[in-house]
């Protein structure tokens, strides 16, 4: 365990060292490639004057709202398309099609419909999350071995009980991987939205990124990218990784 930590730390320290050496070699202008230290400086000052915390808070709040709403709508819709052929042929096809649409494509639509508002932001995130979640849920429920349902039926399980005690738990590995994918999509959509939708109701990480570009503040751009990556990693390690570990233990090697 310690050696793994050591190896990982060495790798990332090495990455920063390489970055530093490339800057030192002065191949590119420092305007385009700032040194690790100047990025750190930016992060420190942004943390001290509060802009970074505020932006992170705004972004994470939007993310959670959009992602939560996406799950709240997507999960039941996925169950619906999995259980009814009619829904599969209609909502299922719609989801399959829209899933392939890059979420940034929703931005112009959102801007025209909702203007420069939080609603536009929310709309883009929900649209970015929803469809892949429907597809993942539908897939998950459909790949459940039919024998589980039959076994449950002979033991007297019917209707709602079968859904809550057999189908949902049996589909759980797929639901979790679908939610993980949905989380990644939500992030992508929100960043697209924040870069294009400039509103005064909240200044998120994407907007910080956007103004970094406008001001040619490369240290800000790279600093914000690092923060975004770190938040993504933190969520994965604290939320999804333990769930996956639990399922790996329960289900065994074949499903997880």
């Amino acid at each position: 365990m310690i050696t793994r930590w050591l190896a990982a730390s060495l790798f990332f320290v090495g990455l920063v060292v390489v970055w530093h050496l490339v800057v030192k070699a002065q191949i590119w202008s420092p305007l385009l490639l700032p040194s690790p230290l100047s990025v750190l400086d930016y992060l420190r000052s942004a943390a001290e004057d509060g802009t970074l915390w505020e932006a992170t808070l705004v972004t994470v709040r939007r993310l959670l709202m959009g992602y939560g709403l996406g799950i709240l709508i997507g999960l039941p819709l996925g169950l619906l398309t999995a259980s009814s052929r009619w829904c599969h042929d209609t909502i299922g096809i719609l989801a399959l099609g829209l899933q392939t649409l890059p979420s940034v494509c929703w931005v112009p639509l959102a801007l025209l419909w909702f203007g420069q508002s939080e609603a536009a932001m929310l709309f883009v995130v929900v649209m970015g999350t929803l469809w892949s979640l429907i597809i993942a849920t539908d897939n998950g429920v459909r790949t459940i071995p039919p024998i589980y349902r039959r076994a449950a039926r002979t033991m007297g399980s019917t209707g709602l009980h079968t859904w809550t005690h057999v189908i949902l738990p049996a589909a759980l590995p797929f639901l979790i991987s679908g939610m993980k994918q949905g989380w990644a999509f939500a992030w992508r959509s929100l960043m697209a939205a924040e870069i294009y939708v400039t509103i005064l109701s909240g200044f998120g990480l994407g907007q910080l990124l956007h103004y970094g570009r406008e001001l040619h503040a490369m240290d800000q751009v790279i600093g914000v990218i690092i923060v975004i990556v770190l938040i993504g990693l933190a969520v994965d390690k604290s939320l999804f990784a333990p769930t996956e570990r639990f399922m790996y233990r329960r289900w065994g090697t074949e499903r997880a």
């Binding site: 024998i147 039959r150 033991m155 057999v166 738990p169 049996a170 499903r255």
Partner: peptide, 25 residues
């Protein structure tokens, strides 16, 4: 009650949980 060829045990439950499944109904 029916017992199937391939094990139709539920992998999301422990051994005890599986035996309790029918009893809870």
């Amino acid at each position: 009650l029916m017992m199937f060829q391939e094990s139709a045990l539920f992998p999301w439950l422990t051994v005890l949980g599986n035996v309790l499944f029918g009893l809870k109904l």
